[in-house]
Simulated assay, not measured.
Amino acid sequence: MADEVGDDDAGAARSGNEPETSDSLKVFGAVVKAFRKRAGLTQEAFAPLVGYSVETIASIEQGRRLPPVGFVEKAEEILDAFGAIKNAARFVGRKPGLASWFRPWARLEQSAATLCTYENRFVPGLLQTPGYARTIFSGRIPTLEDEEIETLLIARVERKKVITERPRTIFSFIIEEHVLRRQTGGPEVMREQIAHLLDLCERRNVDIQIMPQSRGYHVGLNGPMQLLETPENKWYAYCEGQETGQLISHSQVVSTLQKRYARMRAQALSVEDSVSLLREIQGAL
């Protein structure tokens, strides 16, 4: 997906990568809602049966969220929907704001059991504040219209909900120190961004580690990467470059990237030391 904003929206606002409209999402949500009501289930009763939060169910039924991998099968089975939910899912498109090459990963991301991210260019997209993201979007080449920037910001905010809506998902982030010392958007934007990171560090399911500048060499220098474990314990990886992204399912390649990530966690600062460094950087702004 190769974007300058953090792993998801590059090029999505341009016609070449423009996702489908949200009409198909709304239709899919209406189908799920109809069969849920036919089964006599409230959203509160339905949510634990499919293994997702009430907020996620509401978002899907309102056409505001792509159904996570696994939801379709579970909903179809529980609601005895005669194949209607599966068929509707075939035509589901993503709301504007996600690049075409990133959409398969974004769909996996929404139901991940574990999600690991190493980033050496910018704060990862899932962790960005609106001010930070707007700064990056506004500086893109080719330049974007104001409306396009707003579309990307809406998609970013929607995607970030995975952290708060999935408290049982384990999130691990490794970020290069220079990314946090670069005053992207100026001191005020970075103070807000670092404060947001510190808030996230308090969540039991989120680990943020900093790769210190003093670390002369580490095994992640080949570039950013993401690793993901599905609820079925299948692992995938995602890597990106300029205007492209690669979803990797080959077990041997994924295993190699897992080993690199594990070594990076040992080479980075501990979670506690990373929090101390974040506070130091924040105080210097």
Rank of each mutant, 00 (worst) to 15 (best):
64 R>T: 05
170 I>A: 08
21 T>R: 15
143 T>P: 10
150 E>M: 14
224 P>A: 01
157 V>M: 05
149 I>H: 11
221 L>Y: 07
115 L>V: 05
162 V>M: 01
198 L>M: 15
242 Q>K: 14
226 Q>F: 02
207 D>H: 14
212 P>G: 05
83 G>N: 04
130 P>A: 02
281 I>T: 07
187 P>I: 00
249 S>Y: 09
189 V>D: 00
251 S>E: 15
184 T>S: 11
7 D>C: 07
220 G>S: 12
152 L>F: 03
240 E>C: 15
66 L>I: 10
177 E>R: 03
195 A>H: 11
224 P>Y: 02
44 E>S: 15
16 G>E: 12
29 G>K: 06
210 I>N: 03
274 S>F: 10
3 D>K: 03
282 Q>R: 13
182 R>Y: 00
57 I>M: 06
129 T>H: 07
234 K>M: 11
34 A>I: 08
139 G>D: 02
250 H>C: 14
43 Q>G: 05
182 R>G: 03
222 N>W: 15
212 P>Q: 02
120 N>I: 05
253 V>P: 07
192 E>Y: 06
218 H>C: 10
198 L>P: 14
35 F>A: 06
233 N>S: 14
156 R>Q: 13
248 I>S: 00
28 F>W: 09
220 G>Y: 01
66 L>C: 10
173 F>M: 04
133 A>T: 09
238 Y>W: 07
121 R>C: 11
9 D>V: 13
199 D>N: 12
119 E>L: 01
153 L>T: 01
23 D>W: 05
177 E>A: 07
60 I>S: 11
4 E>Y: 06
51 G>S: 08
43 Q>D: 04
78 I>W: 01
203 R>P: 07
159 R>Q: 10
277 L>C: 07
59 S>K: 15
15 S>E: 08
267 Q>I: 04
77 E>L: 13
218 H>Y: 09
234 K>R: 15
211 M>Q: 04
223 G>R: 09
174 I>Q: 02
108 L>T: 01
185 G>A: 00
131 G>E: 04
84 A>F: 04
97 G>N: 05
116 C>M: 14
24 S>G: 14
86 K>R: 15
85 I>T: 07
74 K>M: 13
5 V>L: 04
154 I>E: 11
31 V>W: 09
94 R>S: 03
28 F>C: 13
171 F>Q: 02
176 E>T: 00
129 T>R: 04
79 L>W: 03
88 A>I: 02
51 G>Y: 03
